[in-house]
Design a protein around this nucleic acid. Structure first.
Lengths: 122, 122
DNA sequence: GCACTTATTGAACGACCGGTCAATAACTTT
DNA sequence: AAAGTTATTGACCGGTCGTTCAATAAGTGC
């Protein structure tokens, strides 16, 4: 009942995931989220409550299919470096994602993904 | 000639390095820099020109003794994830630091340092 | 002491930040 | 068609962001 939503939540989370992965948590502004998802601020806050919650939703959505793509690795890196040490909930989500990943050398893969960022521009 | 500086530039860069390493580039504010270095905003800008330049000075100072300490690894991670892909100068500094490092498995070490951040709080 | 040069100080700037909310719209139920 | 419920809209909020700069201080050389 009530007015129906105009947007698909999964799709919005997916767009937020792209942004957070590439620009980082502190590097992503609400305006950018608004522009890329098409939702206005009010709708984002009604649906997710806060920027932090939206990030957590995006991070959690990795668990469903952690594919070791650059985007996934970037988001995990952002979660670990920018938030995990001060946010136990984020830290726990990271643990779950990694425990479900069927690779023994996640650290090697994360590190390689980081080092790749300095190639191709000098 | 002129008024002499009250501060030791190397020491200020070192304090900035600590902050950037632990809080990230976008996560570190001028106010925090002011509080931890003891310099006022005007002095920081006179000495370094911009927040970005101060970060570059901090990053470059790693080259002198890249010791693979958590702080050094954190700063390198910040440089790579938050800046390197959009800032060729930062990317180049990262390359120099890593080429000077006498370790073949930097990626493994960077990754391990990241994963360590999710331990010890659930 | 006066001119010159360079550094410190901190108030002020406009831009942007994450977040709020009253008004309105779109649905269901009766 | 009226009442009830939930979603959208976007202007607005106080606070913080990185940056600037005129006033002042602290040196040196004449």
């Amino acid at each position: 009942m009530g007015r129906p939503r105009k947007f698909d939540e999964t799709e919005v989370v997916s767009l937020a995931r792209e942004l957070f992965a590439s620009r980082g948590y502190h590097g992503t502004s609400l305006d950018e989220l608004v522009n890329s998802t098409g939702l206005l601020r009010g709708s984002i806050y009604k649906a997710f409550g806060s920027k932090r919650n939206l990030f957590e939703a995006a991070l959690s959505s990795l668990g469903d299919d952690f594919d070791q793509s650059p985007e996934s690795l970037d988001l995990l890196t952002v979660a670990l470096k920018e938030l995990a040490s001060e946010d136990a909930k984020v830290a726990k989500i990271c643990q779950e994602i990694i425990s479900r990943a069927d690779s023994k050398n996640v650290s090697e893969i994360l590190g390689r993904n980081l080092l790749a960022k300095m190639k191709g521009q000098n």
